[in-house]
């Protein structure tokens, strides 16, 4: 495991109340944004593409929770699905909109997998993020908008996540698909 540089951790001042500017940022179709986190979701590695796209310097990222780039347009239900999936040692593909340090946002097709250590235990999580197709983003945006609206009606975070999850499951059931199949149908342009 790489040792964290001494300049990370609580020493780095956390002064970040970023407001979304509505500016959309993109990246190259063959760029892959890579991060690794520990079991608690704290960033242990971010590649140079991540630093460039998120407009956050590497020393400001290491040791920080991954939620540092969370966008208010992301439903809690999707993150809950993500954690439930990777904690059961499964991979997850998800469309995610992230908030950059300068207020811009960027959509990614995230592939999150557990990293398995030499003894078979989960030692951390790994995320590869690729550029999604504009069509996929157009399809997923209204669904996320509905989920966020549903979640905003609940004061407690756990209630909000549950309500969002229920709505997500209902929508997927109505379409006769699963989240995984929906994501892949949008990624490959096939029918869900």
């Amino acid at each position: 495991m790489p040792s964290l540089p001494a300049t990370t951790g609580a020493v780095v001042p956390v002064a970040r109340t970023v407001r979304p500017t509505g500016v959309e940022r993109s990246f190259g179709p063959d760029d892959v944004i890579v991060t690794k986190t520990d079991l608690k979701g704290r960033i242990t590695y971010a590649n140079d593409v991540f630093c460039r796209v998120s407009a956050i310097a590497e020393p400001d990222l290491l040791g920080r929770p991954h939620s540092v780039i969370r966008h208010p347009g992301m439903p809690k239900a999707v993150f809950q699905l993500l954690w439930d999936t990777i904690r059961s040692r499964q991979e997850l593909f998800a469309y995610v909109v992230n908030l950059a340090g300068d207020g811009a946002h960027y959509w990614v097709l995230a592939h999150v997998t557990p990293s398995i250590g030499p003894d078979g235990e989960v030692v951390g999580y790994h995320s590869n993020r690729r550029l999604p197709s504009p069509r996929a983003v157009r399809e997923i945006e209204p669904l996320y908008r509905d989920l966020v609206a549903e979640e905003r009606g609940h004061a407690r975070s756990s209630d909000a996540a549950r309500a969002g999850r229920e709505l997500l499951q209902q929508v997927l059931a109505d379409r006769g698909t699963t989240y995984d199949r929906l994501v892949w149908s949008l990624a490959t342009g096939a029918a869900a």
Partner: peptide, 27 residues
């Protein structure tokens, strides 16, 4: 790292007959 993860996961998916899961070629 990505190649190892993708190849393992896509082959596992194929052996589980989840054929919609493919190897993403980006990058």
């Amino acid at each position: 790292d990505a190649y190892v993860r993708e190849s393992a996961a896509s082959l596992e998916a194929a052996s589980d007959e989840r054929f919609h899961r493919q190897f993403l070629l980006n990058g």
